[in-house]
């Protein structure tokens, strides 16, 4: 796997499920987490469901816009988008929007394995030439970094997520598939997420 080009850091190849667990462990203030289609949300689900998790079962590329929308609606809550490299390549424009608006409570984590793992391991442009951190910085998200190793990741996510953003972290990860399958019930996912954010409708059915 070619080294990322921005600042030419030496980066270790990490594991998505492991990083996701490390991230979730750091969440102390009911942060919202929006996870993109496929392995990204499977590994969030596998890390242990939280009421503030949103799992995408379609609409590839929209994890960052959805998280951005949550961040606009709840400026006091930290919001994190978990997205794959193939997905963000499909939606690079949203980085320009986020770079322009600069929501201070939004953090983006890109899991970059250089392949479209779930559809048959086809190579993505990130495997050879596209540098997600360089793209994000160019789009106006100055606080964008490659993750060097597990310890560095823990340092980068040991912070308040409701301030200091927008931040983008990109990690080179291995080719392992997700380790669980998210429940495929979109209205249930939406309803529980909204209750986790305090915006769901209350009714006797909640009892």
């Amino acid at each position: 796997m070619p080294a990322p080009t921005i600042d030419a850091p030496a980066v270790k190849v990490l594991n998505r499920a492991d990083l996701t667990k490390r991230l979730v462990t750091k969440l102390a203030r009911d942060e919202a987490v929006v996870a993109g289609i496929g392995n990204t949300n499977f590994d969030l689900y596998a890390a242990g469901h939280r009421p503030q998790n949103f799992y995408m079962l379609g609409s590839m590329g929209l994890a960052c816009p959805i998280a951005f929308g949550v961040a606009l609606a709840q400026p006091e809550r930290g919001v994190i988008a978990l997205e794959g490299d193939g997905s963000i390549l499909m939606a690079l424009g949203c980085l320009a929007t986020i770079g322009m608006v600069k929501p201070r409570n939004l953090t983006i984590v890109i899991m970059d394995n250089g392949i479209y793992q779930i559809t048959g391991r086809q190579k993505a442009a990130t495997a050879s030439s596209a540098d997600i951190v360089a793209i994000a910085r160019g789009a106006g998200i100055a606080n964008s970094h490659w993750v060097r190793d597990e310890k560095h990741f823990e340092e980068l996510v040991s912070r308040r997520f409701d301030d200091g953003g927008p931040v983008l972290l990109a990690a080179k990860i291995d080719d392992k598939p997700g380790i669980a399958q998210t429940v495929r019930d979109p209205p249930l996912i939406r309803n529980r997420f909204m209750r986790g954010l305090g915006t769901g409708r209350a009714s006797a059915l909640d009892a």
Partner: peptide, 17 residues
Amino acid sequence: TREDEAIGTLAGAYMGG
């Protein structure tokens, strides 16, 4: 930058209230 981005942002905002 794109219309589907506008829809995604709207969806997130709605869920956030």
